[in-house]
Design a protein around this nucleic acid. Sequence first.
DNA 1: GATATTAATGAAAACCATTTCATAAATATA
DNA 2: TATATTTATGAAATGGTTTTCATTAATATC
Lengths: 328, 328
Amino acid sequence: MKDVAKLAGVSLSTVSRVLNKSSLVKEETARRVRKAVSKLDYQVNDSARILRTNTSNLIGVIGAGMEHPFLASLLKGLETEAREQGYSILLGDSDGEYEQEKIYLNIMKQKKIDGIVIISANVYTDILRMVKESGIPIVFASGYINDRDVACVTVDNVAAAYDVVDHFFQKGHEKLGIIRGPNSDLVASEERIRGVRLAYSVHNKIYSNKIQIEGDFTFEGGYVGTQKLLEATPDITAIFSFNDEMAVGAIRAIEAMGKKVPDDIEVIGFDDIPLAEYVKPSISTVSQSGYELGAQSIQLLHNIINKNHIEDNKIFIPHKLVYRESTI
Amino acid sequence: MKDVAKLAGVSLSTVSRVLNKSSLVKEETARRVRKAVSKLDYQVNDSARILRTNTSNLIGVIGAGMEHPFLASLLKGLETEAREQGYSILLGDSDGEYEQEKIYLNIMKQKKIDGIVIISANVYTDILRMVKESGIPIVFASGYINDRDVACVTVDNVAAAYDVVDHFFQKGHEKLGIIRGPNSDLVASEERIRGVRLAYSVHNKIYSNKIQIEGDFTFEGGYVGTQKLLEATPDITAIFSFNDEMAVGAIRAIEAMGKKVPDDIEVIGFDDIPLAEYVKPSISTVSQSGYELGAQSIQLLHNIINKNHIEDNKIFIPHKLVYRESTI
DNA sequence: GATATTAATGAAAACCATTTCATAAATATA
DNA sequence: TATATTTATGAAATGGTTTTCATTAATATC
């Protein structure tokens, strides 16, 4: 920077002003400085800038199980939009471990991230408290936090689950089975269960918790869950699985018991990952765009960071039921 | 830090020494300093440290299409191992755009990354040159660069492709079809073609480029490619696809033409992404661990950064042919 | 006991930008 | 023309570490 100043015949302050597009520098001087900058191929020293300004153009992303197809596309959306807005992504996959989340949070604080995106259905309240206390702008992606000053971007889980069950009832099904997420995934699963119950009450049916079984979002979880479900209630004719992998597991379990999908039992999944389309039978599912979710999260975060006026800090991205071979 | 020094009754230098585990500080003083550190809950200012030392504990990752299941698991491996070694991951998905790669490289340079992992079959030679010139330690993950001082971690593409074709020949197949990667994916695809040709010559058969068709690693690409392939050579009895998605597309195309997999045509894919197991028929494929690939890449990079002695800077991770329903 | 080594600490320079405050130059106002 | 205001610039302080060099304290050697 000193060299640039010397070459342009100005002071360090002026160079800095030009670089930061300050308005109070004569256009002619600015031009001279810019010329020197490009001639010397000067690049600002980021750490020095961060040290002075306490802003890094870095956005921290903490999540768990990012290799899951839906989250991977979410990450892609985050990444692309972040780039667009001039941020870089500092990535931390915690595997859902509390200690890891804490470690990442600390690292990110030290790196002076401008904001943080937490991708997670399951959120340790302790972590949330730490982030709030630190004053770092935060957005929850694909998870709803019932706290008026925490921003969230997510699909409307209540409405989506309602749509699925409503659809089943409209088609004349009476006995349903639900494969929910693990208990650690409290929020999203609870929301969806709320949607399920809503549909039950709208259709004047009585809901019992016995129709739901806990899954772990894996193929195997769906397989085993369905076995148990059908053991307890053999006359189930429709299954709603809270993600697509478990739906595949459910279908295989049904087939293994000698029944047919969709003729004997219809199945609807959630997420619409690519798998859902290629598997046989292909899976009807609640489609939501991970990419969109990621992109919107960054936009919202960007607005929070810049203290722009925000209409609403709870954003619901659209969802849509897509019908494939696992339903009639 | 000043406060810590005052509380412990020592100078800044001593605090710094304790923090950096310098040996030349009396154990008793060190204890006093540590106590003060924890009492004040002091954390070093990262940017100041980077400014002074030019090392950031940051590893840059540049890749394209990271939402692809195989690459997502690779990323997971990178991330987990990086965390283990005390690094954080600065992520950049370039979408394969030259300009984007350049931008990311610049940002990463400014952030003073300690090393860089490039995930890519297609590498712009210009980018490679820039990285080499900048002296940043570099590792190519899942891509082979024919340059003795560039470190690579990858599956042995030649051997893997050889195994597949050898298997087909052993089973008595005569007419094969190959769905290769796009031309942008020069290196990996070329290596695999080399493996194919090797198998041909070992089995005393004559290889013709007509049996291969270019794909784009998507389901659709596999579908269309297979149509063309079967149009040109209707009596093909075995297809080797360079990834699993295209293999699924191939199978659907074959079925659409009224033929059966594996009875009429056998199909083998590459990567062994979760999809391969759940799709119907499930896909026989060359299994390689993305996670392992990522983890080994970080270890190698770590060794390069620390100038440890390196046995070999070309690491081949194991692969294995797994047989499922798409082969007899 | 005197001298040579080694161990432990502190002072101050260096890393490189941003920003406040002061000042000089240019323009507007009376 | 003299004064007030605005615009453009520079000097110097600041952010928080690490590290070199100098110095003192402690130990070893003769």
